[in-house]
């Protein structure tokens, strides 16, 4: 891995010198008390100690609402038009390792049988600069799902703080390599050693074993106990970097035109599995919550060999009912 030294001024220069008509920059910024990824913020925050944003950056790759095509009827002819796709490039700056890692996870789903061209285009048009993380709270558990503070999964370039003014910049992917060559050609090579903060996982589990327990415990009281306090919103799924369910609907503008749209959806909603007949196979929150955990730690693992979770803890921090997914999986794996 090629490594360079980059100082804060050089990062500021990079931000101001990227041609604004070709590049958007997405970086964390502070809004009141919470952090959020903000597009073209004038105060991007590059700080490893910052907490994760309230909601992940997945919206920039898998928008909350996306037009697939427009339809129109004239006389008796029906015509379809494709939506305009903004070909602008996206630089994500200071992504948490637990955010960056979600892109390869989502990619597997969006390329498994059908290739989602919109998602792929957005990923191809982006460069992710990950930032080593020095934050942690009770909700984090990245090391339990095979990641860590310095994990470069999903990043094209990775920054590790070296001192107050300097970062070690590691080139992770070919895309990252071309980006550095084009926009940061004058960096000095780095040869020293980096020091980073250790992460102490307070709910360690082995994600490779969790799967079997979940499969064997389809009926366990933990689902009922969680389901009775879970109020069934989709906060957890919508803030999550890896949840990817969507609903496809048609919206008409009048009798003769409209568009087909893909919107975020989530398994915590009662209507998610409700059949037209009125029958609902997941007719209680207990079953719906079990689906959430099973999909993430069993079904996805079964299919793709990794879990559908980066341990970012967002779902937990924001849960209005105080449900902690890491704690649930931890207790599962310790039973």
């Amino acid at each position: 891995m090629k490594e360079f030294i980059i100082n804060t001024d050089e990062i500021a220069n990079l931000i101001s010198s990227l041609p604004a008509d070709k590049w958007d920059i997405l970086a964390p910024a502070k809004d009141g008390k919470s952090f959020d990824y903000v597009l073209s913020s004038d105060k991007p925050i590059i700080n490893s100690e910052a907490p994760p944003s309230k909601i992940s950056f997945k919206e920039y790759f898998f928008p909350k609402s996306e037009t697939l095509f427009y339809y129109k009827r004239e006389a008796n002819e029906i015509s379809l038009t494709e939506p305009k796709f903004a070909e602008k490039k996206l630089l994500v700056l200071a992504a948490k390792p637990c955010d960056a890692a979600s892109l390869p996870i989502l990619s597997k789903v969006f390329n498994w049988d059908y290739k989602d061209e919109f998602f792929n285009k957005r990923v191809n048009n982006s460069v992710i600069i990950g930032l080593s993380c020095a934050y942690s709270d009770e909700s984090c558990f990245c090391t339990s799902v095979g990641l860590d503070r310095n994990n470069t999964k999903g990043s094209d370039i990775f920054l590790t703080p070296f001192n107050d003014k300097q970062y070690v910049l590691s080139v992770v992917s070919d895309k990252g390599d071309s980006f550095v060559k084009e926009f940061l050609p004058n960096l000095t090579e780095f040869t020293g050693t980096k020091e980073t903060k250790e992460f102490i996982d307070n709910k360690p589990f082995d994600y490779k074993k969790t799967k079997d327990w979940i499969a064997a415990n389809f009926e366990n009281k933990i689902w009922a106990e969680t389901g009775e306090v879970c109020i069934g919103c989709a906060q957890c799924a919508f803030v999550c970097p890896t949840c990817h369910c969507f609903d496809i609907v048609d919206e008409n503008c009048d009798l003769n035109c409209g568009r087909r749209i893909k919107n975020w959806d989530a398994c915590q909603f009662g209507v998610f599995t409700k059949h037209a007949s009125g029958h609902n196979p997941r007719n209680s929150q207990e079953k719906r919550y079990r689906q959430r955990v099973s999909h993430k730690f069993d079904y996805y693992y079964e299919k793709f060999g990794e879990v559908l979770c980066t341990g970012c803890g967002r779902c937990t921090r924001g849960c209005p009912a105080g449900i902690d997914i890491g704690e649930i999986v931890f207790s599962i794996s310790n039973q």
């Binding site: 909350k64 109020i231 919103c233 989709a234 906060q235 919508f238 919107n263 975020w264 989530a266 209005p320």
Partner: peptide
């Protein structure tokens, strides 16, 4: 708004 309906559920 992301239509998570947490405002309704809570």
């Amino acid at each position: 708004c992301i239509k998570c309906y947490a405002c309704r559920q809570v």
